[in-house]
């Protein structure tokens, strides 16, 4: 090489300040000129070198996202949030399979019994409650102790996962509801109870272990459905497995679950930081 690049241009190249055309021109010269290359090598700021090296390492050695993370990324979820969700036990394929089987069983039962969609209406709101219980907490999340000691609030992690579980379970239940016989507004009467019960279990998780909170809410729901159905059908002189008659699925019952959801959300907003600190009273 009989000529050398202008020192000003070499300096600009080293600091990444040249426009792409000039940078490409200098780069082409550097490939053939050991003297200019040696000059540039010492002029690149350490911070820039580290950044470039991190980019190379990331491109060559970076972990490929898991399928669920790719799906979430496609939906616009940031990669770090997708990783937090990928670790949620109740967002694994096996969990979705169990939910699908349960819903399928309830739909088949609706076609073959006098009770119609009662079993479906009983089970559908419980699925997100169970999913939330299996999303966070000691004995459920294997890294719970590490998560508690980390600065990210436990309430944020729980709410993030609960939202994902509620959304995914709701989609599955809505698809299953389309297969119910005599499709009418009753096919959607599980939606508000699902929201109300899920939020109630989250609010209770500020004083109880999340699994115990979900268990208490689930028992209360089953008792309420069976009790109100029994009372309503006694008046009609029908057996318990007769048509859906529980007041919980009337407009007034639905309104009550909307109020429950609002109260639970308020409670959660006021007490969420209690989820952060694991104390002996919240041990399973």
């Amino acid at each position: 090489m009989t000529w050398h690049a202008d020192p000003g241009q070499l300096h600009g190249y080293a600091r990444g300040e040249l426009d792409p055309a000039r940078a490409a021109s200098v780069e082409a010269h550097l490939l053939a000129c050991p003297a200019c290359r040696a000059g540039v090598a010492t002029a690149v700021p350490r911070e820039r070198l580290d950044r470039i090296w991190a980019g190379v390492a990331e491109a060559v050695d970076g972990p490929r996202p898991r399928p669920v993370e790719r799906l979430l990324g496609w939906l616009g979820v940031p990669d770090h949030t997708a990783r937090l969700l990928a670790a949620t036990p109740s967002l694994h394929l096996s969990w979705f399979a169990a939910v699908a089987v349960t819903l399928g069983f309830a739909v088949v039962a609706a076609h073959g019994s006098r009770g119609g969609p009662l079993l479906f209406l009983l089970l559908a709101p419980l699925l997100p409650v169970a999913g939330v219980a299996a999303a966070y907490g000691p004995g459920i999340d294997p890294t719970h102790e590490l998560a508690v000691a980390a600065p990210m609030p436990g309430s944020r992690l729980l709410l993030l996962r609960a939202a994902a579980v509620l959304a995914s379970t709701t989609v599955l239940a809505a698809l299953a509801a389309l297969a119910l016989p005599d499709l009418d507004w009753l096919a959607a009467a599980w939606l508000l109870p699902a929201l109300g019960l899920t939020l109630a279990s989250l609010a209770l998780a500020t004083v109880l272990h999340p699994a115990a909170a979900a268990g208490a809410v689930a028992c209360g729901w089953v008792a309420a459905v069976v009790g109100t159905q029994g009372v309503a059908l006694r008046h009609l002189r029908e057996p318990l497995a007769g048509p859906v008659a529980s007041v919980l699925f009337d407009p007034a019952g639905q309104l009550a679950f909307l109020v429950l959801a609002a109260l639970a959300a308020l409670t959660l907003a006021r007490r969420a930081d209690l989820i952060d600190l694991e104390t002996s009273r919240r041990q399973p």
Partner: peptide, 15 residues
């Protein structure tokens, strides 16, 4: 995953 819990959200710096 633990790094994310420790609030390292920038992918490249975290990795």
């Amino acid at each position: 995953y633990i790094a994310i819990l420790k609030e390292l959200t920038d992918r490249r710096a975290r990795h």
